[in-house]
Design a binder for these strands. Structure first.
Lengths: 191, 191
DNA sequence: TTGCAAGGTGTACGAACGTACACTACTCTT
DNA sequence: AAGAGTAGTGTACGTTCGTACACCTTGCAA
């Protein structure tokens, strides 16, 4: 049975949460009451299932399925064990929203000019810094020294900034248009 | 200068995102163009700042401040050097959204019944599990075995579920109303 | 000028690591 | 009864790891 794998995965999750690190084969063996070689074989099975993968130097690192929480879908009927639903890992949302950590910043929204795009006053935006953005994307641009959030559009006259609110008008930059970055995600507190 | 530390942290964040692992001292040295000993000393400084910490076997693991992202205010005027941005506030998205990790789950939204509350199809909700919720809050309720997202309201006839979309109607539960949890946050990818 | 701390390089060493191979015990299937 | 596959142990080996110590440069204060 795959009983042992499940138990091992549970202990690995606890270990990883505590140390942000998958133990070595020897450590894994100690943790599970196995010999080092038993741990090697067992880890091989976890690798096949995508729970673990190999990192630099042959070290074990968490695989794609390692952090997966039973995502409670809207159509989900059974949610039997509350213990398994727990979102213990604090990294998940961050990884979901941020692809390139070193070039990503957070910007707080002021104003309602993008309200029809679902961006409200007070929301937080995940912004990836880059100077060139494809048209049609939501961007953070710099107009008169201030940040502004708009759709970047282009027509035969060049690029312009389009709000998602009828009460605001299109901005056509005189001269060059300075792009701060592209909006790749958003989040807000509801409480 | 602390210039080198900031650059190193940026590269470390990208490396960690790719491999879920902080490199060894030798790997860190290669990454930064330093000798192994230079990496040892530099890592010592990162340890002092809380960006890294020590794991089992002396290995480096991300510290508490490792996942923080720079927060750029919407009213910020000058943003001259990227280094300057790091001087502002920094938060982790997870800490911002999740207050009680052990009782928080993520739910993916299906349907448009809450669209006027800014909750769209495909959004992710941060749900804090609890059985009793104050009225007026957005809740995940269980109706006929299915999850549903609605405002929880109360009148003289008792509790009912109110959608934020004119095309949907109020749900008055027959018998008891089962609350799965309260929606305390939401996030979505825009790319 | 002297002193000294900060930040860097080079070398060395024992411990721990990943890997490989041989072997055993048990459980199925043929 | 024989064979194959699975899950485990033991031993061995070369590499890499973290650590320590000596040494060099630069900037700055006494």
């Amino acid at each position: 049975m795959a009983d042992r794998e499940v138990a091992a995965l549970a202990k690995l999750r606890d270990y990883y949460r505590k140390h942000q690190l998958i133990p070595s084969y020897a450590g894994l063996g100690d943790m599970l009451g196995l010999s080092k070689q038993g741990a090697v074989k067992l880890a091989g099975r976890l690798l096949l299932r995508g729970w673990l993968k190999r990192g630099p130097g042959g070290r074990l690192v968490p695989g794609g399925a390692f952090f997966e929480r039973p995502l409670v879908g809207a159509a989900a009927a059974g949610f039997a064990s509350p213990a398994e639903e727990l979102m213990g890992d604090a990294i998940t949302i961050d990884e979901y929203l941020v692809e390139h950590p070193s070039s990503t910043v957070l910007v707080e929204v002021r104003g309602d000019s993008m309200i029809n795009a679902g961006i409200h006053d007070g929301d937080m935006l995940v912004v990836e810094r880059c100077s060139s953005v494809n048209s049609g994307k939501i961007v953070v641009a710099i107009v008169d020294g201030d940040f502004t959030i708009k759709y970047l559009q282009r027509d035969r006259h060049g690029y312009y900034l389009q709000p998602a609110n009828d009460q605001f008008s299109i901005i056509r930059p005189q001269g060059s248009l300075e792009i701060y970055g592209e909006v790749v995600g958003q989040f807000r507190k509801l409480r």
